[in-house]
Simulated assay, not measured.
Amino acid sequence: MSHDTYELKADAREQVGKGSARAVRREGKVPAVIYGDKQPPLAIALSYKEIYYKIHGGGFLTTVATIDVGGQKIQVLPKDYQLDPVKDTPMHVDFLRIGKNTEVNVEVPVHFINEDKSPGIKRGGVLNIVRHEIEFHCPADAIPDSVTVDLSGADIGDSIHISSVKLPAGVRPVIHDRDFTIATIAGSAAMRPETDAPAEAAAPAATE
C-alpha cells in the first residue's frame, strides 16, 4: 500500500439518528460511525474540511487511518461515505475498525504498462479495458495502491486474464471461480481490409 496513513481528530457523539446528524452538520462537522472488530459502534463527529479533502484527494477507501477520539486512537479503514447530491459535500462516513487480523474487500484500480512493447498495439490494435478496477480480498494493513498489467508481447486477439497478473502476498480476487478477463487487444476499424467489389459490378456486362 503506497498511500500514506493519516490521523484525524474526532469528537464522540452521545446521540445518533437523523436529528443528531443534522445538528452535527450545523456545527460544520461531518457525522461518522466506527464499527467492526467485535466492538459496539462508536458515533463520532469529524472536521468537515479534513474529511472533504481526504475524500476528494483520491485513495480514501484504500488508505488505513487513525482516528483520535478524546485521546483514544483507533485504526480504521473508510468503508463508505455519502455526498450531498447537489453540493458534492460529505454528509456521512462509515469506518471499519482494523484489528490485528482484519481482512477486507476493496476495489483496486488497474494500471497498464509497456504498451509500446505490445506487437498488437504497435500494429494499430486497440487496448480494450474490460475492468478498470478489480475487487480484492486482502489484509487491511496491506491494501495495494493498484495492480499492474504488463502488455509486453500482447498481440491482436490476445486476452489478459487475472491469472497473468502478479499479485502481492495475501491479496486475492473476490471472483475466484473463473479466470476472468481484464483487457483484450482488438483490431481497429482502420486495419480491416477493404471489402471486395460486388460480383455483379465486377463482371462484364452481358452482350445483347
Rank of each mutant, 00 (worst) to 15 (best):
G59N: 03
A189R: 15
S146V: 07
Y52S: 13
H161A: 12
P139I: 06
S20D: 13
A205K: 07
I44T: 12
I162P: 06
I185P: 03
N101D: 15
G125Y: 05
L167N: 02
P198C: 12
K87N: 10
P168E: 10
P78I: 11
V104H: 13
K38N: 07
K122D: 12
T195D: 14
D179A: 00
V147P: 04
G36M: 08
R25W: 04
R13M: 11
D37Q: 12
R97W: 04
M91V: 15
L42W: 01
I121M: 10
T148N: 09
R131M: 06
V93P: 05
I129N: 05
V16C: 11
S146M: 14
Y81P: 07
S2T: 13
I182Q: 00
P198L: 15
G19M: 00
G17H: 01
V130K: 08
Y53P: 07
E135M: 13
A65T: 06
C138S: 09
S159D: 08
D68E: 11
A140G: 06
T66F: 04
D37C: 14
I74V: 14
G170A: 10
I34F: 07
I67T: 01
G70D: 10
T89C: 02
E133N: 08
T63E: 01
V76L: 11
I34L: 13
A189E: 08
L77M: 01
A65E: 01
R131E: 05
E135W: 04
D158E: 11
D116A: 00
E14L: 14
K100Q: 15
A43V: 01
E208L: 12
V165I: 09
R13S: 12
T63H: 00
Y81R: 00
